[in-house]
Amino acid sequence: MKTWIKILLGLVVVGIIALLLVYKFVYNKQHPDYENLEPAFTVTAQDLYQAYKTNKEAASAKYNGKIIALTGKLSKMETADSLVTAVFVFNQGDFGDEGLRCTMLKKFNDAADKLQPDGEVKLKGYCTGYNETDVVLEKCSIINQ
């Protein structure tokens, strides 16, 4: 076989592999494994809520889109469809309770259902921001003490 054909074939193969890799790791890349991400911040539930309540802009810039580990006294658990939410209440406003709302990763739904109100819990989740009433964390997992 002529050398230039070999080179061409080699390039085609490399090209196909590159396309497959791009497809797998860029186009079709997985959502983050939220449960195993290292938290960027570790705070108390109360401090996190207060940070947003006192200065929304500063807190948004610091915490939005970050993985946050938090501890606090759980107020209640809520279930809506398949969504289980741990709620920490610190205030009352137009929407009733205000505070922190942490929706659990599905695999933690059962464990979260067993969390006791008034008990200290340690959670980790992805902070999506503050909607003027609550600070919202999603994809939460329970951190074992």
Binding site: N64, D81, L83, F95, T128, G129, N131, E132, D134, V136
Partner: peptide, 23 residues
């Protein structure tokens, strides 16, 4: 997005939505 805040004031018809984009 399953974290949408909404309030409807039935006496005035006032209707508000608040949606976090990262959700």
């Amino acid at each position: 997005n399953r974290q949408v805040n909404s309030v409807l004031d039935f006496s005035t018809g006032g209707f508000v939505f608040k949606v976090l984009m990262k959700s």
